[in-house]
């Protein structure tokens, strides 16, 4: 078996078996093309990745909220020799107002810090993943 196949399979299993129900729910929402996370109803803390309780005050009184789709590139890199992805493999932090910085795959020509990006969805081997694409100026 090709090494890429082994890695892709391990990655899928990683998502499936990570073991926390909030993460699984996050991927279920992605299938419905919804980019969601959890917010604490007691202290208003937003967690990303989503959790079943608030990591700030440990309250279980949480709700799911939709993350705004638009943000700005805070930092990025283009991994040219990452075995598991096909080049270009651009990843980075996207700063979303009122939410925080989210690590994500990025797509677009000549990405720079401050570029406006928008959340989109991608089907990869039967899983739906989020990706942020550079917006046309």
């Amino acid at each position: 078996m090709d090494i890429r196949e082994i890695i892709s399979r391990a990655s899928k299993e990683g998502i499936k078996y990570y073991g926390d129900s909030a993460t699984l729910k996050f991927y279920d929402f992605l299938k419905e093309r919804k980019f969601m996370t959890t917010k604490c109803k007691d202290c208003s803390n937003i967690d990303f990745p989503p959790r079943n309780f608030c990591t700030n005050c440990f309250s279980e009184n949480i709700e799911w909220i939709e993350i705004p789709k638009r943000g700005k590139v805070y930092a990025f890199t283009n991994q040219k020799r990452a075995l598991r992805f096909v080049y270009p493999d651009i990843i980075g932090f996207v700063e979303i107002e009122g939410v925080g910085r989210i690590l994500t795959k990025l797509e677009g020509e000549d990405i720079k810090i401050g570029d406006e990006v928008e959340c989109d969805f991608q089907e990869v081997d039967g899983i739906t993943l989020h990706i942020f694409r550079k917006m046309k100026s």
């Binding site: 990570y18 990843i91 810090i113």
Partner: peptide, 27 residues
Amino acid sequence: RIDWHPLLIKGNTAPGVFALPAVRYMH
């Protein structure tokens, strides 16, 4: 590969992890 939480994989590779703050610093 660095493969923890699927949403927190950072860069998947050690160079990717350190490249992100490097880009920020240079900026």
